[in-house]
Computed example of a mutant assay.
Amino acid sequence: MKNPIGYLGNRFLGKEKATSEKKIEPMAPINVLINKEVAAHIRSWRFIVLIVLVVLTFVASLYVSSGNLRSAFGNPQDPDKSFLYLKLLTTTDNSIPPFHVFLNFLAPLLGIALGFDAVNAEQNGGTLTRLMAQPIYRDNLLFAKFAGPMILVSTLFTSLVLLMLGGGLISTGVRIEPQEVIRIAGFVVISLIYVGFWLSLSIFLSIKFRQSATSALTAIGIWLFFTVFFPIVINLIVRSFLPNPNYISEQEFLKYNELILNMLRLSPSQLYTDATTTLLSPSVRSLGPITMEQMIGAIPAPLSFRDSLMIVWPQVSGLTAATVVCFALSYFVFMRREVRS
Rank of each mutant, 00 (worst) to 15 (best):
E16K: 14
E16V: 11
E16I: 10
E16L: 15
E16R: 14
E16D: 11
K17T: 12
K17L: 14
A18T: 10
A18D: 09
A18F: 09
T19Q: 14
T19I: 12
T19R: 15
T19G: 12
S20T: 11
S20P: 04
S20L: 15
E21K: 10
E21L: 13
E21C: 06
E21R: 12
E21P: 04
K22D: 13
K22R: 14
K23C: 07
K23T: 09
K23S: 10
K23N: 11
I24D: 12
E25S: 12
E25D: 11
E25I: 10
E25Q: 12
P26K: 01
P26C: 00
P26H: 02
M27N: 11
M27F: 13
M27L: 15
A28R: 15
A28S: 11
A28F: 10
A28M: 13
A28Y: 10
P29T: 08
P29R: 02
P29E: 03
I30W: 06
I30E: 09
I30Q: 07
I30L: 15
I30F: 08
N31E: 06
N31H: 09
N31W: 09
N31V: 03
N31I: 02
N31D: 05
V32M: 14
V32A: 15
L33H: 01
L33T: 01
L33R: 00
I34R: 00
I34H: 00
N35F: 05
N35Y: 03
K36T: 12
K36H: 05
K36D: 04
E37Y: 02
E37D: 03
E37Q: 05
E37H: 01
V38L: 01
V38Q: 01
V38F: 01
A39H: 06
A39E: 05
A39D: 06
A39Y: 04
A40K: 06
A40F: 04
A40I: 07
A40D: 04
A40S: 03
A40T: 10
A40H: 05
H41P: 05
H41F: 11
H41G: 08
H41K: 14
H41M: 14
I42H: 05
I42L: 15
I42M: 13
R43M: 09
R43T: 09
R43S: 15
R43L: 10
R43I: 03
W45A: 14
W45R: 13
W45I: 13
W45V: 12
R46C: 06
R46T: 08
R46K: 14
R46S: 09
R46F: 14
R46N: 10
F47E: 06
F47I: 02
I48G: 07
I48F: 14
I48A: 15
I48L: 15
I48E: 08
I48K: 11
V49N: 07
V49T: 06
V49K: 04
V49A: 15
V49E: 12
L50W: 02
L50Q: 04
L50K: 01
I51T: 04
I51R: 03
I51G: 00
I51D: 01
I51P: 01
V52K: 00
V52G: 02
V52T: 10
L53Y: 02
L53W: 02
L53C: 06
L53N: 01
V54G: 00
V54S: 02
V55E: 00
V55K: 00
V55T: 01
L56W: 03
L56E: 03
L56V: 13
L56M: 06
L56K: 01
L56R: 00
L56D: 03
T57M: 08
T57K: 05
T57N: 12
T57W: 05
F58G: 02
F58A: 04
F58Y: 03
F58P: 00
